[in-house]
Design a protein around this nucleic acid. Sequence first.
DNA 1: TATCTATTTTGATAAATATCAAAATAAAAT
DNA 2: ATTTTATTTTGATATTTATCAAAATAGATA
Lengths: 186, 186
Amino acid sequence: MTEAETLLLFKCLADKSRLQILKSLAVEDMYVERLAERLDLTAPTISFHLKKLADVGAVRSYKTQYYTMYALCDEVFKPSMLDLIREKSSEADLQAQRDEAYRQKVLQAFIQHGKLKSIPAQKKKERIILEELLKSFEPGRVYTEREVNIILADYHDDFCTLRRDMIGEHLMARDKNGYWRIDQQA
Amino acid sequence: MTEAETLLLFKCLADKSRLQILKSLAVEDMYVERLAERLDLTAPTISFHLKKLADVGAVRSYKTQYYTMYALCDEVFKPSMLDLIREKSSEADLQAQRDEAYRQKVLQAFIQHGKLKSIPAQKKKERIILEELLKSFEPGRVYTEREVNIILADYHDDFCTLRRDMIGEHLMARDKNGYWRIDQQA
DNA sequence: TATCTATTTTGATAAATATCAAAATAAAAT
DNA sequence: ATTTTATTTTGATATTTATCAAAATAGATA
């Protein structure tokens, strides 16, 4: 079941009238007008709800002589809600989730109380730290080397290494006028 | 769990953002701002959703040094949706349900193609039939005996018995001017 | 075929609610 | 104490949607 389908299913359960319809159908099959009478709603309203329920496969219908009988499809409601919550999101989302978890882990390991405990030896980890420090610079603005140093010194004494690696990782660029952020477009 | 609580719970699951929050919390505990970043929503919006989720016991929170961490409460989501649908409604509702089912059974047994196959011998069943036939009369209007006969004859040849029992069951009344429905106020 | 009746569709309306910006709280660090 | 930062509350807005009346459709009986 896709994420969108799950949402649709829950939306069906999230309405008083539809919940009552399902409860009624759980007892016995019924036709539109009888449901309307039971729930004190008009037939069009019942029809509207039944259509939504049918769309997610929650009910099915069959003809008897006079009426269109509606019946509950139990199967759809067998899984526990937890199952559906745990169901993996789209693959891309899952990956993003793992990446973000890792990123947070690194940040928490190296940055404490706003200070950088040490500069990570692993390139991958240092990159994460640098990306975080980059947030202290405004996009588009040009900084003097002195300004860059002051900002970076706030995190770690070795601001020279940090500044150099910002350039090395292509997170910042420089020319004779100064330094600026390089922003990858979203 | 009461019917209203069930509805609230389903409503919590019926929103894209809240579903994503729950999915995220199923992986690991998180704080408001991080969720906001992940879902690309503002912190107030996340806070709004978390409050709703907390109201139905879907999440709980605890403090760490900096943040208010939110965690999933699995227990709430353990039951299958079918369990909740099948959960008995209020007692009164259940009784009404049984009554109505019985009523339908009797009606279908004795009335076919708009005609009364026979007049039930059991008083209880006949009463159900009479209540149904009563719908053919307009509330408040006074009918001549002849008019009553014509209407009842449409259902069964023995309209005299039907007419008499309508009076006997106090479903209709008569005086020198004619017959009329007695409507029990709702 | 014509007529009745059950059901669905359409159009309109009112209620619920997800979202954000801005303001208010709360909580921690300096 | 003051400042910073995370969270919540408030107020406003736009979207969604449940509901009904009326019209259209479909299905069955006569």
